[in-house]
Design a protein around this nucleic acid. Structure first.
Lengths: 337, 337
DNA sequence: TTACGGCCTGAGAGCGCTCCAACAAGGGTA
DNA sequence: TACCCTTGTTGGAGCGCTCTCAGGCCGTAA
């Protein structure tokens, strides 16, 4: 290991024959430095391979140019084929990279996790904190906001004290579009596989289902799931047992829809002839299921990008941040409905 | 925003009626502090809501307790249904979390990305750098190592100057197991869909294919892919055109195997009756394909965990780090072969 | 020639923390 | 009683950087 001593500002200054302050000015791109001196400094920087020490810099500037993204701990345990968090990470990552900020990934959810994240943020390790998907009435966003740390959520937080800006997608609109397709194509016994009710996404999609069906004068039939494929299988079986004659099912996630497809096949039902299936997400894999899945596309990566952009504005001190941004959803019609 | 002034060590010391040094000792868990004083300090910390300033701390300790994971930029662009990087992240994340280190995620690959990562690491923002999957002869790992920064790679680096410790999986063994199954079940015209040849994983799986078939006295038939599903479809079509009578295909990734399955179905071939298919990865989705995919399981998350563990040892100054750790692969037999 | 801005540059004071050297008490030993 | 440990505590010197402020230089106008 060539742990050669790393050069400091001081060393560069000596070599260039100027003061520390001047080097600092050059390094930070100040314009008030004479061209000849600037060049001399740049040469010294080059020759010495100087890179500013981040710790020293943030000690005085009080900012770190990195931003945390908090994932619920479940992301680490349960969903080994989940594509939601990867998409969020992709979106956030690309946007932050463009702004030359760093992404710090943290898992939270456990009590210990809470505390860790809080300490981490308060210790000034990051300039802001973004939450990817809030579970239940998570107190953490509010807690950090109260500590004066910039916070943005993906998905409307249930707890809003103080209100934290968020970006979410139009769940209700997407659900309505899906159900409308089902209804206008003549389906009358439309069941749903709901998502977890401690998450706004699960909640709003179920509410949307109830409202649209009520408006259409159709009966509701609900089974509970947790967004996973396995829960989709189980829920679909339960639904079939309750109403063997149902002719459509709306699943609140693509993975659950895939599970439903499987359970339907096992039960000898043809899709879409006997039962139409619609999902919610539009993951890549849904183009390749048998049959290809009709689903509501939600722009996950885009949500990540927007979230990151809002965070950047927040950090920059922009006074008028939208308290909420709702991204549109879109019905993608394929073969399953 | 309640940006109330954050208390410093000094403030805590004043409140507890001791010196800064003593507070520092208590906060950092030194044992040589009298119990009564320790309690008084803890009380003051509690009351003031004191959290040590990370920048100040790392300025003197020269460590940050966070570690970077570098993803190739492609991860951000191409693979929207790739499950490799999420799995690596999961593995690394869980291990680092247990060690109370933070994970900093960075994308690299572009020239600009290189420079950013290098500066970032050299600036002392992280204590070490891990690479998830090396593309071609990436100079970055060696470059950082030469700068004295702890580096670990997932996947053997092609460039080994200076040699960088890595963890990889037993590609050759997995391929041999897959092909043996094919051969002993009577397949004689076994094709392969190869991965990108600028990655060790692609290279070694193809080499393994060639060697095993040569030993068995069987002919080779190769089509090139890039690990994606789409490339699997294309490659399978090419293979079918070249040898309509092939009776088996080994794909160097699950996604390509799924593509092959699709192309085979489109061409009217039955799997496994007409053509047997084996993949490599064992992603969750491969349990649900039609038919379920026989594949070589590589322990991706485990590789992430091991990589993180090695990194932790490296940072701790452990003198004897294994220069290479090879994790076993395992053939998972399902319906496609 | 002197006076006066304007423009650059340098000196120096921190940012909040760790850690070393030095020192104050006690308690045991000769 | 004098001496030496041991245990616990303090002051202070930095870590490497930014940023304010004062001061030097020069051109221009009086």
């Amino acid at each position: 290991m060539t742990t050669r001593e790393r050069p400091t500002l001081e060393a560069v200054a000596r070599r260039a024959g100027v003061s520390r302050a001047t080097v600092s000015r050059v390094v930070n791109g100040s314009t008030t430095v004479a061209a000849t001196i600037r060049e001399a400094v740049n040469r010294a920087v080059e020759e010495l391979g100087y890179v500013p020490n981040q710790a020293a810099r943030s000690l005085v500037t009080r900012q770190t140019d990195s931003i945390a993204l908090i994932l619920p701990e479940t992301a680490n345990r349960v969903f080994s084929d989940d594509l939601f968090f990867p998409a969020i990470i992709r979106g956030v990552g690309s946007e932050l990279e463009a702004a030359d900020k760093q992404l710090v990934l943290m898992m939270a959810g456990s009590a210990a996790g809470y505390h860790r994240v809080e300490r981490y943020a308060v210790a000034g390790h990051v300039d802001g904190v973004m939450f990817a998907s809030i579970h239940g009435a998570d107190p953490l966003p509010g807690l950090l906001a109260r500590r004066g740390i910039p916070v943005i959520c993906s998905g409307r937080p249930m707890l809003a004290d103080p209100p934290v800006p968020y970006v979410d997608v139009d769940h209700a609109g997407g659900v309505a579009a899906a159900l409308d397709l089902l209804i206008t194509s003549g389906r009358r016994r439309i069941a749903t596989i709901a998502g977890p009710q401690d998450m706004v996404a699960g909640l709003e999609r179920l509410t949307g289902y109830h409202e649209t069906l009520r408006r259409a004068g159709l009966p509701s039939l609900v089974a509970a799931g947790d967004f996973t494929r396995e829960s989709g299988v189980t829920a679909m079986r339960a639904l079939l047992a309750q109403d063997p004659d149902l002719d459509a099912v709306f699943a609140a996630s693509d993975l659950m829809a895939h599970g439903a497809l499987q359970a339907l096949r096992d039960a000898g039902r043809r899709v879409p002839d006997d039962v139409a299936v619609i999902g919610f997400d539009d993951f890549e894999i849904s183009r390749y299921s048998d049959p290809p899945l009709t689903t509501v596309r939600q722009p996950i990566a885009e949500a990540g990008r927007v979230m990151a952009r809002q965070m950047l504005r927040l950090i920059a001190g922009d006074p008028d941040i939208d308290p909420a941004i709702i991204l549109p959803t879109e019905l993608i019609t394929r073969a399953s409905a």
